[in-house]
Design a protein around this nucleic acid. Structure first.
Length: 245
DNA sequence: AAGTTTCACAACCGCCTAGGC
DNA sequence: GGCCTAGGCGGTTGTGAAACT
């Protein structure tokens, strides 16, 4: 793929946005919408790249964005969802109206991670130190040769932490992943789905058809998000005994 | 008061995927 | 099916403010 020239080389501005630029962007989007981000800055008269405009709008200027500190409930939700989903910030953000993935990511790194570590320390859980769910590379989440699907929120063993208690680097690449043989990933395989379907059926939930075969796996990660979300919601509302994930 | 360190968060970078041609 | 582009995502960096020495 041919990489688009960077903003600076195109004579475009980088760095913090000025109130004037914000105003131009807001006025333009209110008037014309944002059908094409790449064309937008040119049409609006902004010396920014489309990507920068999109980010500014989605993370800061959108009218439905909730500003201010996170509530206790929001923090708890993030912690809970992060436990389940790992670093899938956009999926987490979708559950928190008015909050952006960037904001959630920041609050996680600056507050919640520490908070959780402190909690674990205060409970004196020496045998089970706090271990942050590893961000499992999405491109590795696809079924490979129908061998099953790795969890979106695999846990590291305590040996993945250095003796000083600081974290080792997060496994984010397939290279690292392959090197680190100590990492064990629970899998969502066909048993997850068959157990879930069976549990749903026993609870009186209408019979559901999955849009994929249990033999052939998912076509993409959106399937995983969609169907996992659906079953979690269904499980919550029907008090289903879903298989461990 | 000045210098240094730490913290918080906005913004950027690089990669991936979907979709059009 | 391959190429290209736009949009989206998660990781990382830059920078101003606050806290500390």
């Amino acid at each position: 793929m041919v990489r688009a020239p960077c903003c600076e080389k195109m004579g475009l501005k980088k760095g913090p946005w000025t109130p004037e630029e914000d105003q131009i962007l807001i006025s333009y989007i209110q008037k014309y919408g944002h059908g094409n981000w790449r064309a937008l800055p040119k049409q609006a008269g902004l010396l920014r790249c489309g990507k920068s405009c999109r980010l500014r709008w989605t993370n800061y200027l959108r009218p439905d964005i909730k500003r201010g500190n996170f509530t206790k409930e929001e923090e708890d939700t993030i912690i809970k969802l992060h436990e389940m989903l790992g670093n899938r910030w956009s999926t987490i953000a979708a559950r928190l109206p008015g909050r952006t993935d960037n904001e959630i990511k920041n609050v996680w790194h600056t507050h919640l991670k520490k908070k959780l570590k402190q909690k674990h320390t205060s409970l004196d859980i020496k045998t089970q130190p706090y271990s942050e769910p590893v961000s499992y590379p999405t491109h590795l989440m696809k079924m490979e040769n129908n061998q099953g699907l790795a969890s979106v929120s695999p846990q590291r063993s305590s040996s993945d932490f250095s003796s000083t208690g600081t974290e080792s680097s997060v496994v984010t690449t397939s290279e690292n992943f392959n090197k680190d043989s100590s990492v064990t990933f629970p899998e969502i395989d066909e048993s997850f789905w068959s157990e879930t379907l069976s549990s749903a059926k026993n609870s009186g939930m209408p019979e559901l058809q999955l849009p994929f075969s249990l033999d052939s796996g998912f076509s993409n990660n959106k399937d995983i998000d969609f169907w996992y979300d659906l079953f979690i919601k269904a499980g919550d509302s029907l008090s289903l005994d879903l298989p461990e994930f």
